[in-house]
Write a protein that binds this DNA or RNA. Structure first.
Length: 636
RNA sequence: GCUGGAGUAGCUCAGUUGGUAGAGCAGCUGAUUCGUAAUCAGCAGGUCGGGGGUUCGAGUCCCCCCUACAGCUCCA
């Protein structure tokens, strides 16, 4: 029996039935066979040792493919478990999956792992890797699986088996002395693992639930080449340098102190970025027909009971009592916005009404989740509530998505959209949720925008579209959000007078585009590694003289720049020019202007541009024109 | 909130078996007047995160808090 295999390059070739992907790879190239980690047969990832029966399209996975890496790291997790089993007998095993970069395994052990243990485990893993341990797959029936893992007191594995569907194929993999419940696939042999690094130790709840026992999770990464590990560690160090918490301190943007955990202080330079962002935001919102309002930071408890926040969000709210009446500090801006809408009667002719607010909200976040500016306890949402006719939903959502694109454009980062559906703890019935969710998806479909669905991740009052951005350490943050809200207009009995003279219920969108000004500043700080585009940069220009004799000229040039509205400062200290340059470079100042006798005589400045170095001398007037142009363009 | 390591000068860190708190950078003062990533010298700077305890004596050992960090869980 023979069959036709479509090879990775698209060509077809005949093979005998039962040939394995590894053998196919060898027939194409020994090099490929050597690098092969797993295979993809008709789109499904399998072991290299899987016999092929019948025609198939075959792809050989190496460490260059995402799927290949995934298999490699998943196999490495088994090796780590084997090592832990050797060093700490009696350890029970949770799960050990591959993640985006590396893998982890969750252990339940009497012994609390120490950093020294990690080194020992690392060593043992390398030993196992070098021993060329092979991965052996077996398929077993449910009873045998339960017996095998039950005898070993592997309570977590037993729980996993019990949770498998009735018709599931149950397979195990043996590598070294370690047997694991696992669907696979795996690399053929541990010898492909040449470099191992255990990265961190952390607690993690079994199955991610707070109610379950906390296991010890070890994060690690492995590579098929030693140099790849060095490269990875170098990249990790580089990423740490971009951390907005570090840059924020170095550049004097913001600070968070013990006196107010989670409540950031904005320093003068951070305030410049903030104000520039807000100016830009106001300008664009003005063009898109928004009217700005400001609602109080604290309103009485009754209001929050009415809005539903009291029932759904109480544990995250701060309260106080004034004149024996209970008040809540707002965790969201919507109820205030509803009250504003109700101050007047509205006609269908007025709709849509777009009401924006840079609203300061406070949320009692759990202490362990705080993270620089990305996750704080008080932040400013660039909020807006849009009240409209049901027939205007699509247009308004489209408008908001377009406005978001405009607001994100001057930063040039990658972002993607996700639609979140009804959560467990929600107000309103399924029917209304379905209509609302469909409206969001329809608007995006119509615009041809791709998006991912997050089941059950919506707000308690409605489904949403989120804009997600990744930070320097690969964490993903939600920035913009567009939430359709059919609940709030109901709760607050909002109405408009229709064409027919009767009262009708408006539909509402609740949206924030930067999301939180604080988080957005954190995101762009990391995105630019502190080297902000000119228009938003706290210090755009620093003028430095070479010797004291040009001090007056340097100061005069600085004043001239400032008068033109450019954020310029002078470094007229009695220091060497190299020293001044070094400092300005560290502060990521966009333009360094050096003035010596030559420039003073000519009425010019020697221009050194951040990232480009010396770009020659320029007349001060010409420079001002150029800078103003660059600021206006918001180039990055 | 939970788990794990951690907190010493503004910053980065050293501090032996418990015995008078140290360095570099930044800061201040002076000298130097210099052409594109660190000029030299001097001075000052700390209730060792906070509170208890053990001890003749605690940065160091024990207990309780607080905070930042990594992760889990939760979220803009």
């Amino acid at each position: 029996m023979s069959m036709m295999i479509t090879l990775p390059d698209g060509s077809k070739k005949q093979f005998d039935a039962g040939v394995t992907p590894l053998e196919v790879a060898k027939s194409i190239s020994q090099g490929l066979a050597k690098a092969a980690l797993a295979a993809k047969v008709n789109g499904k990832v399998v072991d290299l040792a899987t016999p092929l029966n019948g025609d198939a399209a075959l792809a050989i996975l190496t460490f260059d493919d995402e799927d290949g890496k995934h298999v490699f790291w998943h196999s490495s997790a088994h090796i780590m478990a084997d090592a832990v089993q050797h060093l700490f007998p009696g350890t029970k095993f949770g799960i050990g999956p591959a993640i985006k970069e590396g893998f982890y395994y969750d252990f339940d052990s009497e012994h609390v792992f120490t950093p020294e243990d990690l080194l020992a485990i690392e060593k043992e893993m390398l030993r196992i890797a070098q021993s060329k341990a092979e991965f052996q797959r077996s398929e077993v029936c449910r009873e045998d699986a339960l017996k095998t893992f039950g005898n070993r007191k592997e309570i977590y594995k037993v729980e996993l088996i019990e949770g498998l569907a009735d018709d599931a194929v149950i397979s195990t993999y043996q590598v070294g002395d370690f047997l694991d419940l696992c669907a696979g696939p795996h690399i053929p042999s541990s010898e492909r693992i040449k470099a191992v690094k255990l990265l961190s130790l952390a607690g993690a709840y079994w199955r991610g639930s707070e109610k379950n026992k906390m296991l010890q999770r070890i994060y690690a990464i492995t590579f098929p080449k030693k140099e790849m590990l060095d490269d990875y560690l170098f990249r990790l160090e580089e990423a740490k340098k971009r951390d907005h918490r570090k840059i924020g301190a170095e550049l004097g943007l913001f600070t968070i102190m013990d006196e107010g955990p989670g409540f950031p202080f904005f320093l003068p330079k951070g305030m410049i970025i903030r104000n520039e962002l807000e100016n830009f935001w106001r300008e664009e919102h003005g063009k898109w027909g928004y009217q700005e309002i400001k609602t109080p930071i604290m309103l009485n408890q009754q209001l929050w009971e009415r809005s539903g926040h009291w029932d759904h969000y109480k544990e995250n709210m701060y309260y106080t009592t004034i004149d024996e009446e209970n008040y809540c500090i707002k965790p969201m801006n919507c109820p205030g916005g509803m009250l504003v809408y109700r101050t007047q009667m509205h006609s269908y002719r007025e709709l849509p009404i777009r009401m924006s607010e840079l609203g300061l909200v406070h949320r009692h976040e759990m202490s362990g989740v705080l993270h620089g500016l990305m996750r704080v306890r008080c932040f400013t949402q660039d909020d807006a509530h849009i009240f409209m006719l049901p027939s205007q939903i699509q247009d308004e959502i489209r408008g908001v998505v377009q406005l978001t694109d405009i607001l994100y454009k001057p930063f040039g980062f990658n972002y993607w959209l996700e639609v979140s559906t009804k959560p467990e703890k929600a107000m309103g019935d399924d029917a209304i949720w379905n209509i609302a969710t469909k409206a969001l998806c329809d608007a995006l479909d119509e615009m041809g925008r791709p998006y991912k669905i997050n089941e059950g991740d919506g707000a308690f009052y409605g489904p949403k579209i989120d804009f997600k951005i990744e930070d320097s350490l690969g964490r993903i943050w939600q920035c913009g959000t567009i939430q359709l809200d059919f609940q709030m207009p109901e709760k607050f009995d909002l109405t408009y007078v229709g064409e027919d003279g009767a009262k009708h219920r408006p539909v509402m969108i609740h949206r924030a585009l930067f999301g939180s000004i604080e988080r957005f500043i954190g995101i762009i700080t990391e995105h630019f590694a502190g080297a902000f585009p000119l228009w938003i940069s706290p210090v755009q220009v620093r003028v430095m003289n070479i010797t004291d004799s040009q001090k007056a000229y340097a100061e005069a040039v600085t004043e001239q720049l400032k008068a033109a509205g450019i954020r310029a400062e002078v470094d007229a200290r009695n220091e060497k020019i190299g020293y001044k340059i070094r400092e300005a470079q560290g502060q990521k100042i966009n333009y360094m202007l050096v003035v010596g006798d030559k420039e003073m005589a000519e009425g010019t400045v020697a221009v050194r541009k951040r990232g480009e170095g010396d770009v020659g001398a320029r007349k001060v007037e010409k420079l001002i024109t150029d800078l103003l142009e660059e600021i206006k363009n918001k180039a990055y």
